[in-house]
Amino acid sequence: MEINFSPDNLKELATLVAPLIKPEGQRDWVKLAEARDDLFAGKAPAWIRLHVFDAFPAVQIENNPQGWVKGVHGKGNVTRIYLPTAREWLRKHHDEINWNEKI
C-alpha cells in the first residue's frame, strides 16, 4: 500500500511531529557527572554543591518548585539537573558565581 502526501500535507505532518522528536542523545534530565563539563567548567562535584547549589538554594527543587536540581546532597538519590532551566539560570547568574573560588 502506498500513501501519497502533497507538499502541504507533509509540512503539516512535520509540524505536528517535530515537537515529539528530540535529537538523539539530547535529554532534559541528566546526572551531575554528565553536566559538569558543559555547565560547570569541569568543576568538582563538591565545588558545584558548595558554590552553586548551596550558595543559591533556590536552584534546588526541594527548596523551590521552579528549581532545576534535585538530590543535591545525595541521601540515597543521584543528583539530577534539568538542563533547559539550568542553562537559562546559569546564563543569567554567571557573574554572581566566583568561578575561581577554591573549595
Rank of each mutant, 00 (worst) to 15 (best):
A33C: 12
K31M: 10
V59T: 04
I61Y: 04
F56G: 00
N64L: 01
G25R: 05
A46V: 13
G25F: 12
K22Y: 12
L20F: 02
V17A: 13
F40G: 01
V52L: 00
W47T: 01
D54C: 14
N64T: 00
P45Y: 01
P23S: 14
K31F: 15
Q60W: 11
A44C: 08
E34I: 07
G67R: 07
P65A: 05
W29I: 08
K11P: 09
V17H: 07
L32A: 08
V30G: 07
F53G: 03
K43V: 02
D28F: 11
P23L: 14
E34A: 14
I48T: 06
E34Y: 07
L16G: 15
Q60H: 08
K11N: 06
A33Y: 05
A58N: 02
G42D: 05
R36D: 07
I48G: 03
A14G: 11
E34D: 15
D37H: 10
D54S: 11
K31P: 08
N64G: 00
Q66E: 10
L50Y: 06
G25I: 09
K31N: 12
F56C: 01
D38E: 10
K22G: 11
L50I: 12
L20C: 10
P23H: 15
F56Y: 01
W29Y: 04
A18S: 12
L16R: 15
L13E: 11
W47V: 04
K31Q: 14
F56T: 04
N63A: 01
R49Q: 09
L13T: 08
P23Q: 13
L20A: 09
A44Q: 10
A14C: 06
E24Q: 15
I61G: 00
P19W: 11
P19L: 13
F53K: 03
Q60N: 06
L32K: 02
D38H: 03
Q26V: 15
I21N: 15
R36M: 12
E24Y: 14
Q26K: 12
Q26T: 12
D28M: 13
A18F: 14
F56E: 01
Q66V: 00
V17S: 09
G25Y: 12
R49L: 10
P45D: 15
A35E: 04
T15N: 12
D37G: 13
V17P: 02
D37V: 06
P45L: 02
A33E: 05
A41Q: 01
E34Q: 14
L32H: 02
V17C: 09
